[in-house]
């Protein structure tokens, strides 16, 4: 689809922290483990449909495992972020890619959140909101020190910007 004078969005400069891959894998494994365990338990306890239940559990476990190994690698390559003097720029998604841009002058709040799993991997999520109900920008899976630094920098810049950001 490249012709004369075509334009496209370039990838943001920074990748997430490498540990995000591990964090995503843990999430994917947990998501798989729950139904697999339930199916396996029911299969072990009930006689008649044991074969089918255990087969389903096995198929689910293998699929989950493969996804947990491969998908995070792919995600790691597509998820990017960048903060310039003027704007925050984030790219997410694999099948449905999404690029979000929020100008510095319109940022209202900057939040840093660390979930339990993220804490284990020493990661953090930075959420930048603007006055639009639909314009929030999230950067997931940053190293927690990088995240704290980034949040501080964004807060400082936005405080220096006059206006009510609408």
């Amino acid at each position: 689809m490249t012709g004369e004078g075509t334009v496209r969005l370039r990838a943001p400069r920074n990748t997430l922290d490498r540990r995000a891959v591990g964090w995503w894998r843990a999430q994917a494994l947990l998501m798989t483990a729950v139904p697999v365990l339930v199916l396996g338990l029911i299969g072990a306890l009930t006689g008649p449909a044991r074969f089918w239940l255990l087969t389903a559990a096995a198929v689910l476990a293998v699929t989950g495992l493969v996804c947990a190994v491969l998908l995070p690698l792919w995600w790691f390559r597509t998820h990017r972020w960048e903060v310039t003097e003027e704007a925050v720029y984030v790219r997410t998604g694999v099948f449905r890619q999404e690029w979000r841009i929020a100008p510095m002058s319109r940022i209202q709040t900057v939040d840093t959140v660390r979930g339990p799993l993220e804490q284990l991997w020493r990661l953090a999520t930075v959420t930048v909101t603007t006055a639009s109900a639909k314009g929030a920008v999230r950067i997931e899976g940053l190293d927690h020190e990088v995240a704290a630094e980034l949040a501080e920098r964004l807060t400082r810049i936005t405080q220096d910007t006059p206006g009510d950001a609408t």
Partner: peptide, 15 residues
């Protein structure tokens, strides 16, 4: 002047 950000989306089929 009222635009306070952009979101660009592209699904696999759109791409």
């Amino acid at each position: 002047a009222g635009v306070i950000g952009w979101t660009v989306r592209q699904s696999y089929f759109q791409r």
